[in-house]
Amino acid sequence: MIGMLEVIGLTKRFGALTAVKNVSFKISEKEIVGLIGPNGSGKTTLFNLISGFYKPDSGKVMFRDHEISGLPQHKICKMGIARTYQIPRPFLEMSVLENVMIGALYGADESLGKSRSHALECLKFVGLEKKKDVPAHNLNVSERKMLEIARALATKPKLLLLDEPLSGLNPKEVAQARELIRRIRDDFGVTVFWIEHIMRALRGVVERVIVLNYGEKIAEGSFEVVSSSSKVIEAYLGEKWVIG
C-alpha cells in the first residue's frame, strides 16, 4: 500500500491547553479512515493542522512523502488535500455553481470554461445540479453540506478531509451521504479522512478508525475493534448512545 498521509508526533497548543498532543498515524492511498472522539478532543484542530490553517508547535505532516507542515493553505490544497467544514461555509453571495468553480479554478488550476463544466460534474455527483444558479445563501443545511463536498471535489484532491459531513442530516440523507462518501473513493480514487461525532455512522464504510481524547490518540484499528475498546467506551462515558 502506498502512503498518502503520515502524521508524526503532531502537537498544537493554545496557551495552556494542548489541543493535539503528540499524535502519530498513517493513512494509505484509497483508504477511508474515520476520526472520532468526544467534543473538544481535538479532531477539528487536527484537520486544521493537516490543511495548513494552523502551524504545528512540534511534529510534522507528510503528504505523499513530502513535508507539508508550515506550507500555506492554498499550496497544500493545490498539492491535493481538500477539506469541508463542520458548519458549512459556502460563499453566500455567489451562486452554487460559482462556489464550486472556485475549487476548480484555483485548487485544480483550471480555466474559466473548463472549471464551469468540471464544477457542473461535481454538482451532478452530489445531486445539486438543479440548484446551480441559486445563491448559496438559499440552500438548506443538507444542501450546504453537499455543496461543501462538491466544492472540495472540484479541487481534484487526492485526500479529502470531511468534517462531520452527516451532522444535521435526516436518516434518509445520512444513508445517501454515506453512499456518496463511499463513491468518492470508489469512483474517483480519493482517499477520505472523515471526522464523525456519531460513531455508528462510520460502520460499514470505513476501513479503520482513529480515536482522539483530550488531544491524544487513544485507539486505532477496525471499527469493530475500536468500538469495543474499553478505553474508547470510557472516553465516551456519559454519551454512550453515540457509540451505537
Binding site: 500555506p72 493553505q73 492554498h74 460563499f91 472556485i102 485544480a108
Partner: peptide
C-alpha cells in the same frame, strides 16, 4: 466572502 475558506480551496489570497 470568506478568506480562510478561499485559501483552503487553493486561492493564493
Amino acid at each position: 466572502a470568506d478568506e480562510d475558506v478561499a485559501c483552503g480551496l487553493g486561492v493564493n489570497t
